[in-house]
Structures are given as C-alpha cells and as structure tokens.
Design a protein around this nucleic acid. Structure first.
Lengths: 341, 341
DNA sequence: AGAAGTAGCCAAAGCGCTTTGAGGAATGGA
DNA sequence: TCCATTCCTCAAAGCGCTTTGGCTACTTCT
C-alpha cells in the first residue's frame, strides 16, 4: 500500500493525503479524519526511503558504539539510551550505530557522518580535551554532546549536569556535619565527569583548609564489585575516613556492603552520599539505610538530548546550545553527624 | 555532487556511470577506470536514500539493543559487535538499533521490522524457548540468530557453536586425567549456551557414572569479580573439586585469582579449562599458567553473521541456514593429572 | 559479402514521497 | 450583482538513483 493507492481509494489527490498526514493546516478537518481513518484501516506506512529522498531528512541519529572496555556500555549507558530511545520512538526516529575501534573513534564518527545515513550525531563518555570535538566542529552536521570536555573551548552544544557544584554541595554538607576525613569512589579519571566531581570535592575541602588524601580516592569502572573492593581497601587504612562520596549508586551498593561487613553503622560511624542517576533497578531509598544522594535522571537527559537533536533536524529549531542541569541534593539516612574521634 | 553532475562531467550517461560503479560487466574497462578515478577525485558518494528507493534495499541490519542488566552489553558483546561492524563496513552496511524494554523485546523487534529502516534482523542472547523466534518467523524479512533456543523447533537460520560437544570434550579430557570432582562456572542459566554447556558436562560425567555436585556450579554474569567470588566459595567446600570448567576466560581470570590466593597450583592441585572467545584483551596463553581452552572466535562469528545477512540482502543468496561451529580444544598448562586424594 | 553476434553505450521510465504553483468553490463585503 | 477572500484541493515537478529495452558499431562466422 502506497500513497498513490491510498489516495485513489479515498478519491483524493496524493497532495491532499500527504498534507493531511503531515499536519498541514490547509486540509479540511473532515478530510483529514477520513484520511487518518483509512490509514488506520489499511495499515499504510509511508516509505521511509522516499520520504528521505524527498525531504533530505534521514530521520536518524548517528551513534558511535563505545566498545572500549572501561566504559563498555554498562547499566548507566543503558539507562541513558532508554531515554533517547523513548523520545526517538515518539518521533519515529531511530539510531544508526557504528561500532568503533577504541583507537579510532574519530574515524568512526567521520565515516558515520559521510555515510549519509544520519542527519545528526551524538557523542558521550567525554574525556578531557576530547579529540572528537574538533572533528565534529568541521562537519556541517548538527551534533550534541552529553557531558563536556574539560580543557576544550566550551563552544559546542552540550547537555551536562553540574558535576562540580553537585559534589561541592555534597561535600559541604558533610563538612557541616563535622566530617573531616573523606573518601571518594569515582569513575575512570580520564572521563570528564570524574574530573569535575573530584574538583568539586577538593574545592569544598579547600574552603575548610582540608585536602583529599589520595589513598582514599579510587577511579574505577562503576560496578558494585569495584565499590566493594575499593571500600574494603579504604576501610583498612590507618585513619579511615568518616565520609564517603560515590559517583554512582552502583558503586555505593558495593561500598555499603563493605561497610556492613566491617560492622560499621551507615549514617553513624560513617556517612555516605552517592550520585543517583535514577536507575530503574537501583533506588537509593530502598537501601537498608536509605542513601543521601545528589540526583539527576540519566533517562531524562536522554530524552532531552533526543528532543533537541530531533527538533533541530525537523524544524531547524535552535535550542539553547548549552544546558547545565543542577542536581538535587536529597538528604536521607546515610548521612549523619561525624562520630567523635 | 550527484550522479547527474558526475556523468555530465565525464560525458557519459547516468546509466553507464551507475553500471561502472556497481560492477556490471557491460562497461568498457577504460571507461570504468575513468569513472572510478573521477569518483575518487570528486569524492562523489551515491545518495543512500535514492539507492534505497530505487532498489528497495536499505543497506542496514536491525538490532535490538539488549538493555536488560544480566546480558547488558559486556566485553563479549563488544567483541562480537566488532566483528559484525568490520564486515558491515566493508559492504557499506550499517546497523539500526532500538533500545528495548527488557520486557518488550518482541515488540521492539516488531517495530524495527515495520519501520522500513532495515532489511534484515539479527538477534542474540538466546534463551530457552525464546519468544522472539515465533515472531521472527511471521515476518517476511530475513533474520539470523546467533546461538540457538533450546526447547524450540530448530527450523530457523542460526549460527552457533557446538557448546555441548565443546564442554563434553573438555570434561572428558579432565576425566581421562583422573579428575572426579568437577566445578562449573557458567553464565546465566536462562541463556541457551549455558544450558547446553552444562548438559555437555553432565553427559560426559554420566558416561563415567558421575554427576555434577550442584554446590559446585554457579550461574552468574561473566565478569572476573563473579569468577573470583564463586571460585572462593567453591574452594571452601568440604571435598573441593580438582577440576574447573569456566564459560569464559573472563570468569577464569577471577577463578585463577581465587586459586592463587588459596595457594593452590594451577595444573597440579587443580585443573581448569575455560571457553575462549578470543577476546582482544584477554588471552589464555598469557596467563601465568597458560590456560587450556575450548576456542571459538566471537569476532569471527560476528563477521560470518554479517556476511550471511548481507549476502542474503544483496543477492538473495541462500546460505546453509544453520551452521554449527566446532570449537577447538587447546591443551596448555592449566590441566594436569588429578592429584592423589 | 552478408548474417549473426557481441560490446559498449544511452534515453527514459520508474521507485514513493513532498512541495510548488495554480485553480475551483464557497463566503463575505460593497 | 460582482469582486475579493478564504478554504480546500489538485496536477505535476522534482529528489537521485537503478534498470529496462534499444541502439550503434565493431567482430566473427559462413
């Protein structure tokens, strides 16, 4: 079933049917409803290739599949992707992906752009001074960055959360509760968000004349095993910290296990704040001791990014190029006054 | 730059240029070279949408993104995808993906097929009696399954390795070396390959009048942490096993660590065979004690699958619908004669 | 020399959609 | 009553490619 057949069936011209379908104003209400009804009944679906040829819009967003081991699509990436997918589905968009050799992400991106299969690009897992940025800027194709790249001129469109402020605030809260010795379970240090979060912690500490003890800092993949492992290690240190910051609730899951195993009371002997990406399967409020968190939904970020990208493609809308989302500091039971020394 | 311009530039018709580019025989050698040269110089790339409209072939393979936590794209999936991608790149194909709600994989697949954006579908992480199979069969679109689905009629095209034979052989080798107590570190039990591997082990044991002790079997995600954890647990059992089978070298990595920590000698006190997917970053021969393995390259499987799918799309080639690859049993130092009791 | 291929090329007809430019019918105002 | 508007609809021209069917010129065979 194609447009021609459909329009013949309805006794209308292809033009009118097309307009009715695409929401143009100059179609009689009745006519439009008649068309929509017929579409429903026949199950007509416009041919994508033809639409694409006629409009020049591919209806798809390019994605380079992260295949490197460190950030190998984990639960955080899935959550984000779900958001992207949700929004994309609404607009009948889809994603085209190229799996990239970790050493040739730039090349993969370039090929994807040149393939003519996508009309926008998206990148994430930003690193400090990320080489992909330069390339993207030379392309004449809309793109959007999730995160930022510290060390690069911030003259590109991005959506990021304010990682620094987020961890600054969390640290400050703990300082006000009397904590003086801190640990930080962070993501891989080459990633932008990890750098900024560490900066946030250090900035807050500096205001109180304190500094992070590097032995109490870890940079690992964000899995619960790593959280367990690193927390165990840190708890065995001579003067163990009384406050812990985690870059993810997944890390916190392991950390809390280590804390329990050490027979320490969360929120009393030791306080913990985790960053909460609002993962579907790990809610900070359902920990035995509900976690204090800095919250920002990864899925919402996915939705917003799809929205911006699709808007740009469809209507040449220009969104505010740079968005920095504040996180929410939500105090629950895992934080308490520092124990007497 | 489009075909029209290019052909005018060359003083040829669009037909001839098109034929030259697509490898048709009725073009003079000289002419073809002239065309190819011009393409190189101008950087001409045929418009995908137009090609697609004209041929009805989209040049893309549909993929439903596994977002469920258990099989959340790990290092194995990456390796496989790299193979797929490699081959796809060669043919200028790409992948279209839909992230799926784990509870609605069937629906996601259906939508992808209906979207008109792909001309073949691919599925993996097969489970026992997988519900996706029924759906795929109703679609009039080529598809290919990586793995199989135990409990379903094997009347669908697949590429799989002979997991059962593989683990049967490995077990038999260990039996012949005198081992009588076995452990199995396996992948999630709902996955087809895990079921078959366990069956293989049990079949071999049964021939010797033995059975698997369920306490010595684990079904977990295939990470080294899980390997460590489970192996530690198993080593503490009363009559600990002298032989271990691992579903992945990643699991083996953890298991070996546990073995070392228990001060046991690999290949003497305890023997271990792992399945080797030929992962780029984890080679069984570079373990301190090189591992005996059953080998089958995941990347090669990816390449073959892309090859079959693309061949089917391009030329309506029909490949042997079902391929079952034998694995290679490679004996290294991690297996030895069973220790005296 | 004439018949019968064969090699190499071309014009034109789609593929299924969007969009431009135009026109008929109904409405309202003078 | 006539003209200007507004509303709705249409025919036809692309979008850039592939593919069919035909044409010319050159070989080859008898």
């Amino acid at each position: 079933m194609n447009l021609k057949q459909l329009s013949q069936m309805l006794g209308l011209s292809q033009t009118t049917v097309s307009r009715a379908l695409n929401g143009y104003p100059e179609v009689n209400r009745e006519t439009r409803e008649r068309v929509l009804k017929a579409v429903r009944e026949t199950g007509y679906r416009p041919n994508k290739a033809a639409q694409r040829l006629a409009t020049g819009k591919a209806g798809s967003i390019g994605l380079v599949m992260p295949t490197s081991p460190g950030n190998s699509s984990d639960v955080h990436f899935s959550e984000f992707l779900t958001g992207l997918g949700e929004e994309a589905l609404r607009h009948d968009f889809h994603f085209v992906l190229t799996p990239a050799d970790p050493n040739d992400e730039v090349g993969a991106l370039k090929r994807l752009a040149a393939s003519g299969n996508v009309d926008a690009l998206f990148v994430n897992y930003m690193r400090g001074h990320d080489p992909r940025l330069e390339m993207l800027k030379t392309l004449s194709m809309p793109f959007l960055v999730h995160g930022r790249s510290i060390g690069s001129e911030p003259d590109y469109p991005f959506l990021d959360i304010d990682n620094e402020a987020s961890f600054y605030d969390a640290t400050k809260l703990l300082l006000q509760l009397g904590h003086r010795r801190f640990a930080l379970l962070n993501g891989p240090i080459y990633l932008d968000f990890a750098i900024r979060r560490k900066n946030g912690v250090e900035a807050a500490l500096a205001e109180w004349g304190l500094a992070l003890n590097e032995a109490c800092v870890s940079h690992t993949a964000m899995t619960d095993e790593q959280g367990l492992f690193e927390m165990e290690r840190i708890l065995q240190l001579e003067k163990r910290p009384t406050a812990v910051l985690c870059s993810s609730t997944v890390l916190a899951l392991g950390a809390v296990r280590a804390i329990n195993q050490a027979k320490l009371k969360l929120g009393e002997d030791i306080s913990l704040i985790a960053h909460d990406d609002v993962l579907t399967l790990l809610k900070p409020e359902s920990f035995t001791v509900p976690l204090t968190t800095t919250r920002s939904s990864l899925r919402a970020a996915g939705i917003r990014i799809a929205e911006r990208l699709i808007g740009e493609i469809k209507h040449n809308e220009t969104f505010p190029a740079q968005e920095l989302w504040k996180t929410e500091l939500i105090v629950r039971a895992s934080t308490g006054v520092a124990p007497a020394d």
